[in-house]
Amino acid sequence: MTSIEEYGKYETAWCPGCGNFGILNSLKKALVACGLAPHQVLLVSGIGQAAKTPHYLKTNVFNGLHGRSLPAAIGAKLANPGLTVIAESGDGCMYGEGGNHFLAALRRNLNLTILAHDNRVYGLTKGQASPTSEQGFVTKTQPHGAFAAPFNPVAVAVTMGASFVARGYAGMPEHLAGLIAQAIKHRGTALVDIMQPCVSFNKVNTYKWYKEHCYELGDAHDPADHAQALRAALEFGERIPLGVIYKIEKPLFEEQFAVLKNGPPARQEVSQEALRQVMQHYV
């Protein structure tokens, strides 16, 4: 059995009170609950405060470029489908800079997990509007309030028929740990959009605000029902539902590659006989 201690403890670069602490603890708990040893896991992140998370627990880490956690994660998963791959970054990285990759990843449905720390503001660059900021959200770079409407990642994912879509909240770490564990165990691309306060730069969506707005989906919600899921996904105003919004079974992307049935490509030798036959093609 893996223990939470095996995932280590590190000094962080986060502000006191940051929602990232709750998310980090939930992630460790989820990994332990899934019975995963650190060397079986690869965390891939982009750039931003959320993207530093992989540095604060002991696993394999690929901390890549801003916006590009998903392509790097997909490449790694295709090179070694045996790895448990988790792409983790913030709303700016995942939905802004990496928006095209987010859509393409949902279409593919590899067996990987997407953890999006969604604090609805840019933290590392000190407080600009993000793709999920509310319209009218005032910042130094949007002094008249953000003009653009916010991106709803959960609704987009449900609309696209992503196979697992959940929304969690950093202020409810036990609940969140459960969602992350379900996401990791899910066979397919699993999105967990994680509502998260930013104590330094988002004075609107505070711990108090989330407490007033968020509620847990009850047993009445059927995550296999697309119409119900879409209704829940679009409910994003006075009340914000938390939990597994949508969950279906879909074929895995990587299982459609015949060559991956023979184990990781990294461990497959080049066959001289196969090469000889390939060359015959050009005679």
Partner: peptide
């Protein structure tokens, strides 16, 4: 025994290749 993937753009393509190489392909 080679995996080929048409990426959504060239940025994704090179980041995928780097991720795959990191993981051993």
């Amino acid at each position: 025994g080679c995996v080929l993937e048409q990426a959504e753009d060239e940025i994704a393509a090179i980041n995928m290749a780097i991720g795959a190489s990191f993981a051993g392909a």
